[in-house]
Amino acid sequence: MNHYPQAWGRPRDDVYGPYDNSYFQASAPQTHTQSPAVTGTSVLGVKFKDGVVIAADNLASYGSLARFTDVKRLRTFPPNTVIGFGGDVSDMQYLDRLLQSLDIRENYLSSYGHVLNAKNLHTYLSKVLYKRRSDFNPLWNMLLVAGLDDDDKPFLASADLLGTTFSSPTLATGFGAHLAQPLLRKLMPHDEDSVKDVTKEMAVEAIKACMKVLFYRDARSLDKYSIAVVTKDGVELKEDQKLEDQSWAFADQIRGYGTQVN
């Protein structure tokens, strides 16, 4: 031992080689997600007189690669809320776990009564998203929450990675905001006042038509999708629907489509 106390307890360079200071450097700034990785495309939602219809396809893309073709992007929360996720799939799975633990906690605190409805969940999720964006660590999602509000009236609202929220009788995220929303709005000429004139069948049909338009025009979409109808009686969720009555008749007239390459 020498008489340089500042050297005591440190490895000697002639024995261990020069000390690698980079291990000692705890000051590198913490970094966060700057872009999403595996993503889902549009989510569509429409209110009708007794509830809400919501749909999203089963594709998860990795950039332009169609990476996973069996990803369910509609998640249910008991007793009658459905949440549709667009954007990063791993962040969706994180939020899903968060909601599951919330459900367990709620049930533990009171097994009867006091359920969280769609409006409560939307408020909660928007706070989570806003908190994360304020920490510069966003959850890269656009989501739609479908269900009922405090008065058991249809509820449909959106929340995104910035914590922005809004509600409307028809909603669509991503590409759907451009392609589906104008079509869906035809159902609601007087916005909220038109909801009472829309039946479940009308709403489902409109959503299916829009899913088809999106499959035709959105390159990151799939012809397999999930659709859910939420009413006071509960959730009717179908997870492996195929698009029906597609029309590709125009294709054989056009060079470059299908087998006709030149």
């Binding site: 605190l109 006091h114 409560n120 408020t123 909660y124 405090d150």
Partner: peptide
Amino acid sequence: KMTYGRPIPVER
């Protein structure tokens, strides 16, 4: 009220 938009249940 802020996190869930709901009045807290009395028992809780």
